[in-house]
Design a protein around this nucleic acid. Structure first.
Lengths: 238, 238
DNA sequence: ACAAAAGTGTTATTCCTACACCCATGC
DNA sequence: GCATGGGTGTAGGAATAACACTTTTGT
């Protein structure tokens, strides 16, 4: 069980790594992880391990990436790892043990085993979900300005984002609400920015399938669990 | 390791299940599966197990769904399962062992353990990926007509799909090419349908992030591996 | 000729990006 | 007043759903 904990620090997407002191791959940087306990599922286990070993309690989101199982991904022993993506809001600065440190995802140090691949997959998952879910809540502080949020998106996505359109998209989807407060302007002046927060702080898919979408039912458009067992008329007008 | 093998049979999305003969959950229907071997990764293992136990060799696509790890998901023993989605084209009719059978996903029999949840997750994954990838290739025969393909999409998605627009979307994305041949008309006449095939038979994402897309670079628009380490100018114009 | 099935053309809508224009504050 | 950063309004474009219409076959 391995966790790629990502956070935007100093405008850069970084990952928490741990420097191995023993062979194999001594000296290289590895993802934190541990073994599954008897009375927990894998998600709970990851959260527990992060809280215990790394003192990261403000993990706002945890999700499975994939199982990594190449036969010799770790020398000598057979180890199958379930990899996770964990996110920490940008205003948290958790105390980490002395042998751990944050590293920019774009400029990884020498990493152990297949951990670089895991980190890339975690980053890609984050980038994809920023686009069609409200996952931004997991990167941002509880309260923030649009330009601060824009910087987080830029750092996570690796490309420019327009503050104008970011606000409109998130507002249209009702993910963002103004708190009413405003932030103080910088030393060089400028209009004070309005403060916002995310309406939810749990993952919500906002933009499922952009294409081949179901025809708009008159009332509800939900995709229930069991539907359309009949094979005759394919159109599911209720 | 469990595999939810899905196929469109008789215009309905069905899953291959195996009736348990022993406790626990004797008599209930379960997903086929097995243990990971020493010299294979999990994907290879699933393909091997399907080929060995169930004689399903024409599995056109295999992908991880998730790890299911609730502590008591299987009574008495601690079992962590990595669940997979497998797809079989609609024209295949593999010989399956006597204690296995296909069941409609929308009308499952009594299922063992948490397998119903796994099947739902697999179905949802299929539905999502039909929308933004070329995954249709895994459900369809090598050569098919648009209306046949439409029926597959309708069965998999559970809602009506317009043959007109389906063809246009897949053609615009260059996923579909005409073979030049035509199918024979039905007994009641009608214009003979042109035959098509998918250009690729490997998964390809065609419609990544519909929103917050990167600005159109002049030449290449690819998202490389490492990029934009600098924090100053966020826009990645090379 | 007529019905049935397949395929094409066209329109309307929706959603996003880009750009220009107003607002509020510090110096 | 002017520079600086924040926010709104509006126009343009891309992609898709919906629908009307033409084409090709069998009876």
């Amino acid at each position: 069980m391995l966790a790629a904990v990502l956070q935007i620090r100093a405008g850069t997407l970084q990952v928490l790594l741990w420097q191995r002191a023993q062979e194999p791959d001594s000296g290289r940087w590895a993802l934190p992880g541990g073994r599954l306990g008897d009375d927990e599922d894998v998600e709970a286990s990851v959260r527990r391990q992060l809280a215990e070993k790394v003192d990261v309690r403000d993990v706002t989101h945890v999700e499975q990436i994939a199982v990594f199982s190449a036969p010799h991904r770790v020398p000598d022993v057979r180890l199958v790892a379930t990899a996770f993506l964990g996110l920490v809001p940008s205003d948290a600065d958790p105390a980490v043990p002395p042998d751990t440190a944050w590293h920019p995802v774009a400029r990884l140090p020498d990493t152990a085993f297949d951990h670089a691949e895991i980190i890339r997959d975690a980053r890609d998952r984050l980038r994809a979900k920023l686009s069609y879910t409200n996952l931004g809540f997991a990167l941002a502080p509880r309260v923030f300005t649009i330009s601060a949020l824009r910087e987080l998106y830029v750092a996570a996505l690796g490309h420019g984002v327009s503050a104008t359109n970011l606000q409109r998209i998130l507002t249209r989807r009702k993910l963002l609400v103004p708190t009413g407060g405003t932030a103080l302007p910088g030393p060089s002046g400028g209009r004070p920015a309005a403060e916002f927060r995310f309406t939810d702080r749990a993952l919500k898919v906002t933009d499922a399938f952009a294409v081949l979408r179901p025809p708009p039912g008159p009332g509800a458009a939900g995709c229930g669990v069991g539907d359309s067992p009949g094979g005759g008329t394919p159109i599911p007008v209720p």
